[in-house]
């Protein structure tokens, strides 16, 4: 303890008598190892803030990593392998991660198991928004990761990570149960490295919701709405968005112009 450069305690402004008592106390604390042992025996533990947070992190992370409750949420073929992973032979419960919750409010982990379609995407994003922090997302299989074999399909979203932050990607089509278990273990390792100091859910303010996409003529990502309008409407196309407007937007300009004249 005496090796520390700065003072261990900041002495408060008190009346001189108390201050003197206090200083002698601190002096003894810094020099007399027996005194420290005595204090510790009395149930007082002295440590640095970093170490304290570190110990707390350990407890928090242990709790979280050992009871990752997934949302009962199956999309496609991968869901079959996911259920097989929960079931007898592979038994994901050994990792504390097979207590499937029917409600997103009780779930910590969303395993996006299968092809994400445009029609389903608003519901997925809404479910994600409904899950309380801390929450994690595993993109299971090729489809959830990047569209997979169905990527070119007109109703397929090329990967859930365009909308939801993904923690672990599990490759495969579909991934075997072993691969999914490895994904969960990877997530556990990731949780072990987290600290309550830098996680958003221990900070002030609410976690921002992801805007739920809208199904219009095609999928509309509300975060890209200004860009979409800029490319599709004539006003913005003449202004700043003219250079970006692709060939598809050009007939749009004419059509809209016709409408306004009529």
């Amino acid at each position: 303890m005496s090796d520390n450069n700065g003072p261990l305690y900041r002495t408060p402004t008190l009346d001189p008598d108390v201050l003197e008592q206090w200083s002698s106390y601190v002096e003894r604390f810094e020099n007399d190892s027996d005194f420290i042992a005595q204090q510790v025996e009395q149930g007082v533990m002295v440590t640095t803030l970093d170490r304290l947070v570190g110990m707390l992190d350990g407890v928090y992370n242990w709790g979280r990593r050992s009871s990752i409750w997934p949302l009962g949420f199956g999309l496609a073929c991968c869901a079959i392998e996911m259920i097989a992973t929960f079931a007898g032979r592979y038994d994901l419960d050994r990792f504390g991660a097979a207590l499937v919750r029917a409600s997103p409010r009780q779930a910590d982990l969303m395993i996006v198991s299968g092809t994400v379609t445009k029609k389903m995407l608003p519901q997925i994003v809404r479910l994600w928004n409904q899950m309380p922090e801390p929450r994690y997302c595993i993109a299971m299989g090729a489809c959830a990761t990047g569209g997979g074999p169905f990527k070119e399909g007109y109703n397929v979203v090329s990967g859930i990570d365009k909308y939801i932050p993904v923690d672990v990607y599990v490759p495969g089509c579909p991934p075997t149960p072993q691969a999914l278990i490895h994904g969960v273990m990877t997530l556990q390792r990731k949780i072990d490295g987290q600290s309550i100091r830098d996680l958003s859910w221990y900070r002030r303010g609410e976690v921002e919701e992801i805007p739920v996409p809208v199904l219009g003529a095609d999928l509309i990502d509300l975060r890209r709405l200004p860009e979409i309008r800029g490319q599709l409407t004539p006003v913005a196309a003449e202004g700043d968005g003219a250079g970006e407007a692709g060939p598809a937007a050009e007939p749009a300009v004419e059509a809209v112009a016709d409408d306004t004249e009529a």
């Binding site: 608003p122 397929v156 809208v214 199904l215 509309i220 709405l225 599709l232 004419e254």
Partner: peptide, 21 residues
């Protein structure tokens, strides 16, 4: 993987329920 038809105006989509779900 998205495309919009020519003349499509994405006005008021935030409040409308285009899906019949």
């Amino acid at each position: 993987n998205i495309k919009y038809p020519s003349g499509y105006q994405a006005e008021g989509v935030e409040s409308s329920r285009a899906d019949d779900n």
